[in-house]
């Protein structure tokens, strides 16, 4: 039973940059695994500065949004700073329709996100 990673994590200074491996975040099992991998970043690894880079993401469901909201709450609880970046216009519209552009700090590029963390 091989482990499928739903995210790739790289370090830039003391900032963790997270990229999603799935282009379409729809499958319930994949969303569950994605959530756990994200939660581990703040709950197990105690990372305090995170950038979620969405450049690879072409589609995501409201179930995926729900998982991101839970992650945001967990990050806040662990005093971790979280910024989303590289969101395509289509995905940004999803955040905007659901008002989540008010909940998350969003930057155009990874460089912009790194600059403020």
């Amino acid at each position: 039973m091989g482990t499928i990673h739903r995210i790739d994590v790289s370090e830039s200074a003391n900032i963790s940059v997270v990229r999603f491996t799935d282009k379409k975040i729809i499958d319930p099992e994949a969303i569950q695994e994605l959530g756990q991998e994200l939660f581990d970043l703040v709950e197990k690894d105690d990372r305090k500065k995170l950038v979620l880079n969405f450049s690879n993401v072409e589609f995501l469901s409201s179930a995926a949004l729900g998982k991101l909201i839970t992650f945001e709450k967990k990050a806040k609880r662990h005093d971790a700073e979280l910024i989303l970046s590289n969101i395509s216009p289509e995905i940004y519209q999803v955040f905007s329709i659901t008002n989540l552009d008010k909940l998350f700090q969003i930057k155009d590029s990874e460089a912009d996100a790194l600059a403020v963390l």
Partner: peptide, 21 residues
């Protein structure tokens, strides 16, 4: 209403808002 400020952090309930939009 999942999009009202007090419900922003509530997971779920966003599907209908997306469908309507």
């Amino acid at each position: 209403d999942c999009c009202s400020p007090e419900n922003l952090e509530v997971p779920g309930g966003r599907g209908l808002a997306l469908i309507s939009a």
